[in-house]
Amino acid sequence: MSVEKPSVSQELWTDFFAGSRLACARLISVVENSPQAIPEVLDRIIPRQKGGIRVGVTGPPGVGKSTVTAALARRAVQAGRKVGVLAVDPTSPFSGGAFLGDRVRMQRLSDDHQVFIRSMASREGHGGLSPATPYAADVLDAFGLDRIFIETVGVGQSELDVMSSADLVVLVLQPGTGDVIQALKAGIIEAADLFLVNKSDLQGTETLLDSLRFLMEIGGGPRRKSLPPVIQASALQDRGLDEAFAEIERLVSGLVASGLFLEKRRARLESEVRAAIGRELWDKYAALTNAGEVIPAVVGRLLERRRSPYPYIREAVSRVRILIDEERGPREEPQ
């Protein structure tokens, strides 16, 4: 069966580059299900990317992320953009399954605007996204989409994967959930490029806005040049979303003009390079040393004798070069 093969068939590539929606969907399945195929996929798609902008939408559970995402995506279509949505919902740590319900709030977007919408289970991701989400965004970018909305799992205070995967981040909040103390906790607030106070038809909106204003007054810390704008909205009443979309487009222009967009891409590529080298070296090491069996045995002894693992680690690492040299040796000689 084609999904079991590590590589992507030529037929799938042809269909993908011809604009087949199903081929695009299948390619996302490849990066989701077969991590070992990711290098091959990136090799082919990165040269085709046109720099589609990735807009992250994050916030606590139940604040209206899906509804807001759909409303923003709809406006992006109306503004002539080609739009995709990646909507992440949590994987159950018990069963490995996932109930993906974001599409329930995106019905009109799918029906009226033909937007490509993909639900993703978070799987091993613990930062609000699935490990494959950034690659799925790469696929959509190469497919020719120029606004890619990435909706995270409902997050708490520090699930920040979206910050490195998106070009800008909209933090959706709602009144009646905590006070300035919550907001002062490091993390998610600092990741935001735009605060969107949804459900502002509800009581408590002024309190939340006061808290945010207070945060603005005491400053965003030394890392931040300008404080993020705050927009009041109500997705239910369809209020404030034109403003939010206009603000996003303004921020996007700013990102591009200031070079920050490229800076983000640079940082993302750098972490990809680092992580991939780490994985490759680990795989090589594990294969050469039979680490899958050796490490548990060593750990067993360490536990028994109450020893620090570091003498073993130093010894193991020092052996890597020798092993790689040995492995390389016979290969260079013709058999």
Partner: peptide, 9 residues
Amino acid sequence: VEAGMEVVY
């Protein structure tokens, strides 16, 4: 979901 599947509702 409990059987480990991913269900798009």
